[in-house]
């Protein structure tokens, strides 16, 4: 249990750090393709951590894992593509 707990605590910390960095990018006025790409990559990594560690889909239920990770990927890629097309 200690191993699982330590892993979950570490994931929580990474998620908080990712959120803090995203917030900082917004607050410091960072914009443009590079900033947006960074923000969306962070969102993907955070989502992946939630899916694999909190939802406990890593290594099990491959169909469900693929569907949820695929959802995350498609949503973020479409938004990145729309952003590029809009600038």
């Amino acid at each position: 249990m200690k191993g699982t707990s330590t892993l979950l605590d570490g994931v929580w910390l990474l998620l908080i750090l990712g959120t803090g960095f995203t917030w900082w990018l917004g607050e410091s006025g960072h914009g443009g393709p590079q900033a947006v790409m960074t923000i969306l990559v962070i969102a993907f990594c955070k989502g992946l951590l939630v899916i694999q560690e909190f939802m406990a889909l890593r290594g099990v239920k491959r169909l469900w894992q693929g569907a949820v990770v695929g959802w995350l990927f498609v949503v973020l890629v479409v938004n990145m593509a729309a952003y590029w097309k809009g600038i």
Binding site: G31, L40, A43, G47, V50, M55, V68
Partner: peptide
């Protein structure tokens, strides 16, 4: 409990996408 927890994590996952899209990316 695992099923209920998964629903909650889904709610979290959606916000993890919503926050950067609406509040941050520009």
């Amino acid at each position: 409990m695992e099923t209920g927890a998964s629903y909650w994590h889904m709610v979290d996952l959606v916000w993890i996408v919503l926050f950067p899209l609406i509040y941050v990316m520009r």
